[in-house]
């Protein structure tokens, strides 16, 4: 008992020292704001990393109505026939995330493991990504933008971006904020 008690802080410290060479982290926090509207639908949200030429380095998260109008897990895709059983298909509003759709969405088949999930209620959501692991993948050194886009049925659309350099030299916390469909967006990057 005693040796392990001593060893634990030591191994944690070693871990911390070794971290820069092993894995860089990218943490994203997305706030879906409370809106005072008569008819509220949860927004569709896409989070991705854009290169300087605006091409997409990685798709981090897409929240849409996965189960609408079809059996779970068989939601229609950007590139697959939609609607079973007379439903409209939850992908119907994906093109409303119009920047995401233009840059990457229209070429994808959803759902995507580890990227797509159901829409979320009002709140703050923390997402953690690691270099070399899906969905972030291997991000080459360079300048990027974190893009967060939200579109809501019977509501508006908003795009918030945060520029960052990868890999970070030191731990950084970058902030931006939406005005209508998105609240505070935080990007934490660790070397």
């Amino acid at each position: 008992m005693k040796p392990s008690f001593v060893r634990t802080p030591l191994s944690l410290a070693l871990c911390g020292l070794a971290a820069p060479a092993v894995a860089a982290d990218l943490d994203v926090s997305v706030q879906i704001p409370q809106l005072d509207v008569a008819e509220y639908h949860r927004p569709y949200v896409a989070v991705w990393v854009e290169r300087e030429d605006r091409s997409v380095a990685s798709n981090l998260a897409v929240w849409y109505q996965v189960k609408r109008g079809g059996p779970p897990g068989a939601a229609p895709a950007a590139g697959a026939p939609a609607q079973q059983a007379g439903g409209e298909g939850g992908t119907k509003w994906l093109p409303d995330l119009r920047q995401w759709w233009r840059r990457t969405g229209r070429e994808l088949t959803v759902p995507i493991d580890g990227v797509t999930s159901a829409t979320k209620p009002v709140g703050e959501y923390k997402l953690a990504f690691s270099q070399g692991k899906a969905p972030l993948g291997e991000l080459a050194p360079g300048k990027y933008k974190l893009m967060v886009e939200a579109a809501r049925e019977d509501g508006g659309r908003e795009l918030v971006d945060i520029a960052f350099e990868w890999p970070a030299k030191a731990r950084q916390e970058l902030k931006a904020s939406g005005k209508s469909e998105l609240g505070a967006i935080t990007l934490g990057i660790a070397p």
């Binding site: 229609p76 895709a77 950007a78 119907k92």
Partner: peptide, 16 residues
């Protein structure tokens, strides 16, 4: 008189 068309949308997902 000009002949014209008006599509409701032009950028969509499959099945729409």
């Amino acid at each position: 008189h000009k002949p014209w068309m008006e599509p409701s949308k032009t950028v969509l997902s499959v099945g729409q």
